[in-house]
Every structure is written in structure tokens, then in C-alpha cells.
């Protein structure tokens, strides 16, 4: 893994176009899924997807190959979303997605299902997947990183720029929220 990360770092330093093509192919599903989960909006996730790879090209020299490439990639994607949110609403992503705040990011009109919920509902015949869309994005994000991307808790702390203890507490709450949403969907 370390060798692969080093060779990616060397390729990014040189802005190797073939390497970038390969990385885009390789990580397209995982990056798009992560962006969709944190933005809750398909069109926006698509925009951020393209923008993330432009940033990878421009800032590739900053990746040193000491950490997993995907952790660095997700950190770039997350920062783009946060920057965009800040310029738009002068608030941080965390504040926007915090369930204790007034309006979570993905819910523009609470009487209608969120775009994410619609996407998931379209794709699944059961309401199990649709219930994922009911969870606050801040918890969905940690669940995705831990259980889909299988990042270590320390790596997640790096991606999210938060202490390990906060990662853990979000994971515990997220897990409970996921279980609750699933139960609600079944009932």
C-alpha cells in the first residue's frame, strides 16, 4: 500500500495525465458516493466531483504518499464543499449539517423528501436504503468513511480535521441514528 501511495505521489508531482485518468476511473464510485452522502444532492455532488479532481491536479505536489491516497482525496473533496458552503451561507459544513441546528444541509424543504432520499428510494425496492437519507449528513459522513470506505478512526480524524474522540462520538451517534432510521422504515 505504501509503495502504491508513493508512486501516486510521484505521478501527481509530475502531473502525469495517465495516472490522473486511472485514478479518476478507480475512485469515481467511492468519491461520488462520499460527495453524494455529504451534500445530499446529486447535481452538486457531480460538480464537486469534477472540481475535486481539478484540485488534485493543481495541488498534487502536496500529497506526500505517507497516508492513504483516498484519505487525502476525501479531505480535498470535503474542504471544497465546506468552502462553497462558507461562501454561500457563511457557515461551516458542520454547523449546516448539525442536527441540532435549525436547517440541516440536505433538507431544503422538510415537507418534501431530500434529493438523497429520492435517489436512494429510486434505487431500492425496500425502504432500508431510503432510511439512510433520513440520517443527518454529519453522521452519514462518518458512517460512510468508517463502514463503506473502511478508513481507520485516526485517518478519519485527519480527513475531517477533528479530534479522534469526536470521530468516535459521531460514529456512536450515527450508528444509533442509522439503526433508529432503519427500524422506523420497517415499522
Amino acid at each position: 500500500m505504501r509503495d502504491e501511495a508513493k508512486s501516486i505521489a510521484r505521478g501527481l508531482q509530475k502531473r502525469d495525465p495517465d495516472l490522473l485518468d486511472r485514478l479518476i476511473e478507480q475512485y469515481q464510485y467511492r468519491l461520488f458516493r462520499y460527495l453524494l452522502y455529504i451534500t445530499g444532492d446529486r447535481a452538486r455532488a457531480e460538480d464537486f466531483f469534477q472540481e475535486t479532481w481539478i484540485r488534485v491536479l493543481e495541488r498534487g505536489h502536496q500529497y506526500d504518499g505517507k497516508s492513504k491516497f483516498e484519505a487525502w482525496l476525501f479531505a480535498i473533496a470535503r474542504h471544497l464543499v465546506i468552502d462553497w458552503q462558507r461562501t454561500k451561507k457563511a457557515q461551516s459544513l458542520d454547523a449546516l449539517m448539525d442536527p441540532e441546528q435549525e436547517r440541516p444541509l440536505q433538507i431544503a424543504n422538510e415537507s418534501e423528501p431530500s434529493p438523497l432520499r429520492q435517489v436512494l428510494a429510486q434505487e431500492s425496492e425496500t425502504n432500508v436504503q431510503a432510511s439512510l437519507g433520513k440520517i443527518s449528513a454529519i453522521y452519514r459522513e462518518v458512517l460512510v468513511l468508517r463502514f463503506q470506505e473502511e478508513l481507520q478512526i485516526e485517518e478519519m480524524a485527519g480527513v475531517l480535521s477533528i479530534p479522534i474522540s469526536t470521530v468516535k462520538s459521531r460514529l456512536y451517534r450515527g450508528l444509533e441514528a442509522l439503526r433508529g432510521a432503519l427500524q422506523e422504515g420497517v415499522a
Partner: peptide, 9 residues
């Protein structure tokens, strides 16, 4: 269900 959720690209 989280692990098997399918997102269309």
C-alpha cells in the same frame, strides 16, 4: 444495508 447501498453513477 449501508455497505450494500448502491448509488448509480
Amino acid at each position: 444495508s449501508l455497505r450494500t447501498a448502491v448509488i448509480p453513477l
